[in-house]
Design a protein around this nucleic acid. Structure first.
Lengths: 115, 115
DNA sequence: CGGTATCCAGAAAGATACTG
DNA sequence: CAGTATCTTTCTGGATACCG
């Protein structure tokens, strides 16, 4: 039997890769690799600081790869890794679940907010 | 074709039901319904405030049900709903993924932290 | 028992300016 | 282009006290 307890390590990993900006970064990169400023444009509300932080976290956890190509001016490309691809499957499952349950959730919210 | 874009609504829902405490609450409740202080004991590090806030959020989104039984003293039972059960399946998938990829993630972290 | 209310400290996030 | 540094503000989370 495999152990199925939700430990702090599991939760920490999920927190680091499923946060607000990381979801959108992964979604943007799953089509094709993008440069830093291309990512900024793909995710309109993100600040430079938050984008940098999220990218570093994803890179540290092996989900994206940072590739420096040019030298003057510097060109940096971010691409999804195989590990990131497996995460993308999971995100698709999350997205599928939200799409399915959102109507019921909205009904629950409306009835809760009445009371 | 179904639309598979990650909108703000989808992300908001995930944020509200997949946060640190909600994951542990759902895990605790999936066995059997629990009272408020039983939940506190089941999740050692949670404060009263955080537990209350997470329970209200889960209740509002239709994931758990709050059942008041006694009158003096008050007895409150929290039980998982069918919607919460569907979320539990998803959490199992998350847990399965973390269990599978954690070794690779730890290698990635070690190599990142070296540089 | 099952909460609410209040206060406060520390972390996170936004704005701005600067750099190789 | 791709960031870093700094400052400020905002939000979260813990500690504590109290209530029906």
């Amino acid at each position: 039997m495999t152990e199925t307890t939700l430990t702090e390590q599991h939760r920490e990993l999920l927190d680091q890769v499923l946060d607000k900006w990381s979801l959108q970064i992964l979604e943007a990169l799953c089509g094709s690799p993008l440069r830093f400023n291309e990512l900024r444009r793909a995710i309109p509300l993100v600040t430079q600081k938050s984008l940098t932080a999220a990218l570093r976290r994803l890179e540290r956890n092996g989900m994206v790869e940072r590739v420096v190509t040019g030298t003057r001016p510097v060109a940096v490309e971010y691409r999804i890794t195989p590990l990131g691809d497996s995460l993308q499957d999971l995100i698709d499952a999350l997205l599928h679940w939200t799409t399915e349950t959102l109507p019921a959730v909205e009904r629950a919210r409306a009835s809760f907010d009445d009371a």
